[in-house]
């Protein structure tokens, strides 16, 4: 875990020296399981800054909600840093107006897994140095192995370190093994067509079209989402099977070459729908076919966002 005091000190310095106008970070939430995103504008407010393994939002999501001229500081973990890079590439905020405070990330704890073991009403969660988590709930005290609590996306994370932060606070961590991501992809991709469709239908069926996944995703920043488009209407908007499946498929395709595997969509879903098996498959295709990973820099265009004269599909040039 990074030193919280160091984080605060840096954030205060940036605000005091006027390098930035605002810091996007976390503060304590209503329950100990849910720290919430916070926007600190003065160094006094920084005292409320919180950072722990339960901070589950991808902060890059909030970047597109502020004017491009605003100088913004931001806590970034590996995935957030890459989301920011992808957003900079797409012109959503100039890099020179950003100050990224990097945090090497040991993974986000899935609060649902804590509840599974410690019961609903959690009073406090304390991360301990021996990689365990001490949870106090109405049912008593529980010492849980942190590794078993990690969110699935984090368990197979490849790039835990911020790759282009302006400052990194904390020790850099070893890179993850891409084989884990490949395993997950294979688990889905190796199924037969019928099995895959059954899996997909089963997941999509639970959807209530709340679009929390969209709101949590940093890359879903469209002013008007295709599902909200009225004339012409591109997809059924109700919770019909066709409507729900349409949403999940097109959402995944819109992420091709842009998704940084942060898993914020799954964490945000109230219905516990698995979504990353689709985006991870597409990400793996990008890696295999185009040797491309989203957000590794701010210059390389994603393969599907560009056209070259030696394109294999010569349908237009």
């Amino acid at each position: 875990m990074p030193d919280l005091d160091a984080l605060k000190a840096e954030a205060k310095r940036l605000l005091d020296e006027g390098v930035i106008e605002m810091v996007i970070g976390f503060k304590a939430g209503d329950t100990p399981l849910h720290p919430q995103p916070a926007f600190f504008k003065t160094s006094e407010e920084i005292d409320q800054l919180v950072y722990n393994a339960l901070c589950q939002n991808n902060l890059a999501t909030y970047l597109t909600r502020f004017p491009k001229t605003q100088k913004i500081g931001m806590l970034v973990r590996g995935c957030e840093n890459r989301s920011v890079n992808a957003l900079v590439f797409e012109g959503q905020h100039p890099r020179e107006n950003l100050y990224l405070i990097g945090i090497p990330c040991e993974g986000i704890i899935d609060w649902r897994k804590i509840i599974e073991q410690a019961g609903e009403e959690v009073i406090s969660v304390i991360e301990q140095s021996d990689n365990t988590v001490l949870v106090e709930s109405k049912s008593g005290y529980f010492t849980l192995e942190k590794d078993t609590l990690l969110h699935e996306s984090c368990a197979r994370c490849i790039h835990p370190n911020p790759i282009s932060a302006d400052i990194v606070i904390g020790e850099l961590l070893p890179e993850g093994d891409p084989a884990l991501a490949r395993e997950q992809v294979a688990a889905f991709a190796n199924l037969s067509l019928q099995e895959r469709y059954a899996w997909f239908r089963q997941e999509a069926e639970r959807c209530i079209r709340c679009y929390a996944c969209r709101e949590a995703c940093p890359m879903c920043y469209c002013e008007e989402c295709f599902v909200d488009h009225v004339s012409p209407r591109w997809t059924e908007s109700g919770t019909t099977p066709a409507g729900m499946q349409g949403w999940h498929i097109v959402r995944a395709f819109h992420q091709t070459g842009r998704c940084t595997s942060c898993g914020a969509c799954e964490r945000a879903c109230p219905m516990d729908i698995k979504m990353t098996y689709l985006t991870e498959k597409l990400n793996e295709d990008m890696r295999q076919k185009y040797n491309f990973e989203a957000g590794m820099d701010t210059k390389t265009p994603p393969p599907f966002s560009t056209i070259t004269l030696d394109d294999k599909s010569r349908f237009i040039v």
Binding site: C222, E224, S305
Partner: peptide, 11 residues
């Protein structure tokens, strides 16, 4: 509704 993501410009 345009968000100037630049996809059209590049493609």
């Amino acid at each position: 509704t345009c968000v100037a993501c630049g996809l059209c410009e590049k493609i």
